[in-house]
C-alpha cells in the first residue's frame, strides 16, 4: 500500500488522538475531587448561604463533578457539571435536581442548568463575589444576564 506523506501523517495523527482519548485516566477517576468552593459571607451583598446549602445537598450525587451557585434575595442560579458518560441521562437528571431544589427552597425562583457556558459564567461571578467587587444591583444584573443566556434556544 503506497501512502503519501499526507496520508501517513493523517493516519498517525488520528491514531494518536484515538489512543489518547480512549485511555482511561485512573488518577482523575480515583481523586473524584468536586469542583466546589463555598462562598464567603459579604456584608455588602446578599447572604450566599442558600447557595452553599444547595451545593451541599447536590454534592451527594455521584454523577456531579462540579457545582456553581449564586443567589440574590429571591432568585438562585445553579450550574452543575456531570460525569461524561452520565451525559446520556442529562435531561432526566436536570429535571429531577431542579425539582429537588425547588422543593428545598420554596418561594425561591431556582434555575438549574447543566450548560458549560452557564457554569463558566457562574464561576466568574463567584470569584467576583469572593473578591467583594460587586454591588447588589450589579449582582442582580449579572444574574439576569445569565438567566437570559440559559433560556436561549437555537
Amino acid at each position: 500500500m503506497n501512502m503519501t506523506f499526507f496520508q501517513k501523517f493523517f493516519l498517525f495523527f488520528s491514531l494518536a488522538i484515538v489512543c489518547a482519548g480512549c485511555g482511561t485516566d485512573e488518577t482523575m477517576e480515583s481523586q473524584s475531587s468536586l469542583d466546589i468552593n463555598p462562598l464567603s459571607a459579604k456584608p455588602s451583598l446578599f447572604d450566599q448561604s442558600p447557595s452553599n446549602m444547595a451545593k451541599e445537598s447536590l454534592m451527594e450525587y455521584e454523577e456531579i463533578t462540579g457545582i456553581k451557585a449564586v443567589n440574590s434575595d429571591k432568585e438562585m442560579i445553579i450550574a452543575v457539571q456531570i460525569k461524561h458518560m452520565k451525559r446520556f441521562f442529562m435531561a432526566k437528571h436536570r429535571k429531577a435536581w431542579q425539582k429537588e431544589m425547588e422543593k428545598q427552597f420554596p418561594g425561591w425562583k431556582v434555575e438549574l442548568s447543566t450548560d458549560r457556558k452557564i457554569y463558566l459564567e457562574l464561576d466568574k461571578l463567584e470569584e467576583k463575589i469572593n473578591k467583594d467587587t460587586l454591588s447588589k444591583d450589579e449582582l442582580k444584573k449579572e444574574m439576569k444576564h445569565i438567566i437570559k443566556l440559559s433560556k436561549e434556544q437555537t
Binding site: 450548560d115 458549560r116 457556558k117 452557564i118 440559559s150 436561549e152 437555537t154
Partner: peptide, 12 residues
C-alpha cells in the same frame, strides 16, 4: 462557548 456569548445549545 469560552470566548463568545454562546451556550452549549446555541454554539452549534
Amino acid at each position: 462557548i469560552h470566548f463568545f456569548p454562546f451556550t452549549e445549545q446555541t454554539a452549534g
